[in-house]
């Protein structure tokens, strides 16, 4: 990540952590940046509008 993002609550740098998602009854996981203290997960715009959107489209079937 070129953009340096930290957790505003804990002041900590983020670490890649296995994160779980549900969609249409399917369960997937991906390593995402996450605060090691409070656990909040960062989803970037690029990810949401890229891979996540594509995955949603695949799982929506039609």
């Amino acid at each position: 990540m070129e953009r340096k993002i930290i957790c505003a609550l804990c002041g900590k740098s983020l670490e890649m952590t296995e994160t779980f998602f549900d969609y249409y009854g399917h369960h997937l996981h991906k390593d995402l940046p996450c605060c090691p203290s409070c656990g909040q997960v960062y989803v970037s715009k690029e990810l949401a509008e890229g891979k996540m959107r594509n995955t949603e489209a695949e799982l929506e079937d039609k």
Partner: peptide, 9 residues
């Protein structure tokens, strides 16, 4: 931005 996939625990 948004996503429809729901993050679960």
């Amino acid at each position: 931005y948004f996503h429809r996939m729901e993050r679960v625990e």
